[in-house]
Amino acid sequence: MSVKHGLLALLAEEPMGVYRLRKEFEARTGGSWPVNIGQVYSTMQRLERDGLVAKVAAPHEDVDLYEPTETGRAEADAWWRTPVARGEVGRDELVIKLALAVSAVGVDVRDIVQAQRSETMRAMRDFTRLKSQVPAPGEPVTSPELAWSLVLDHHTFTAEAEVRWLDHIEASVARAVLTPSSAGTTTTDRDEAEVPR
């Protein structure tokens, strides 16, 4: 999540101070990606240094307000129009754990899958409970409620995909025929082992 671009997009609507920016960012993302006030301060300092925002006078307030410069508005507009690249996949602890587990000696992958499936299903129940607090389709809804509903939908769909992936892993492990020597060996070791003498 680009906090920098998110803050720039908020400022494109109206000038805001650091505390209000933090509050708006968290409210509009349903609190899913909390940012601390220090992160917002340092981001605003970098944006100002880079000529993307400027301080404006705040009438009757003792708070620095920021607004985007023309360059900053262009940057925010470009961010809205540019798709999020999926080429670079971030590190996912679960993926790393399961990738290592299939080649680790004495590790039961099925136990890991089952434990993770239980945790993911628990999270899905929590998302469903939270979703019941959002107005139903067709009922009046505020912008923050709609934003929170969409964030919950994303979490739910991601969890559903994870359960399907865990099912796939379980089936793949059940079908796989691993030789004892294949776990923990390098390609070179296996190549050497296969050379006829």
Rank of each mutant, 00 (worst) to 15 (best):
G38C: 07
L65C: 03
A9D: 11
I37H: 09
V18P: 03
V35D: 00
K23M: 15
Y66C: 08
H5M: 06
A27W: 14
R28Y: 15
G30E: 04
M16L: 13
D62N: 06
A12G: 05
L21S: 02
L21T: 00
A9T: 00
V63R: 14
S32C: 08
T71R: 13
P59G: 00
L8Y: 13
T69H: 02
L10R: 03
L47R: 03
V63Y: 15
L10H: 01
N36S: 10
V35E: 10
P34C: 05
A27M: 12
A27T: 06
K23V: 13
V40F: 10
L47C: 04
K55W: 15
Q39P: 10
F25A: 01
A12F: 04
D62T: 07
Y41T: 01
H5V: 03
A54C: 09
D62L: 01
V56N: 13
F25I: 00
V63E: 15
A54V: 01
A57E: 13
L8K: 00
A9Y: 12
G17Q: 09
E61Y: 11
G6A: 02
Y66H: 03
T69G: 08
S32E: 10
A54G: 08
E24F: 04
A57R: 11
I37R: 10
F25S: 00
K55A: 11
E14P: 00
K23H: 15
R46Q: 14
W33A: 01
V35L: 11
A9H: 11
V56L: 12
D50A: 13
A9I: 07
V53G: 00
E13D: 11
N36W: 14
Y19K: 05
V56W: 14
A9M: 12
V63H: 14
V18G: 07
Y41C: 01
E24K: 04
M44I: 04
E67G: 08
R20H: 15
V53D: 01
L21I: 01
H60W: 09
H60G: 09
K4P: 11
V53E: 01
Y41K: 05
E24Q: 05
Q39L: 12
P34D: 03
T71S: 14
G38T: 03
V63K: 15
Y66M: 06
